[in-house]
Amino acid sequence: MSGTRRKALLKVIILGDSGVGKTSLMNQYVNRRFSNQYKATIGADFLTKDVMIDDRLVTMQIWDTAGQERFQSLGVAFYRGADCCVLAFDVTNAVSFKSLDSWRDEFLIQASPRDPEHFPFVLLGNKIDMEANRAVSAKRHVTMAQSWCAAKGGMPYYEVSAKEAVNVEAAFQAIARDALARESADTSDFPELENNINLNENNRSSSSGGCNC
């Protein structure tokens, strides 16, 4: 293993309104499972999945989050260090589309990435299996989503169905590729440490008053 690069770890965050299918999307992608039952998510945590991107093995760490604000009472510290942010909405629910702007803004504020202009976002319009219930006609919807994406610097847009596994794999594959491209572009994760390595400073923490329990 010496000489080889460490396996890349990509952190992806899924955001969007309550009920748009964030957990289902992740479950479909990672476990290839789907359930029609609605279960709310509390807090945030992740599943991992190993994927090959152009003969490089990558571990995707996909963070599923609570869409309801009251289930996010500890704040959104987990946004930090994300390599890609997936915004999801429900094509049968117009309100969830309108919320996208605030999710994106909130993410950029809280995660404060180095280059917010070019931070990779991907938009997923879920539940296309429920075509008949679409909030607006399918064609208009695609146009609406596409023009929103264009206004956001050409964000990729995928119409997906977590239920019928339509496009989910392809979308996440693209997400991984984007995130990986960004990771390689970052020269160093910890530039401030280069001149500051002191192996004997390990005891500082004991002065902070922690007990041994």
């Binding site: 500890l74 704040g75 510290a77 390990n202 923490s205 004991s206 902070s208 008053g209 922690g210 007990c211 041994n212």
Partner: peptide, 12 residues
């Protein structure tokens, strides 16, 4: 991980 022993931080 020793840093997680701290007493002085609030939950957030």
């Amino acid at each position: 991980l020793g840093e997680l022993k701290t007493n002085t931080l609030s939950p957030k």
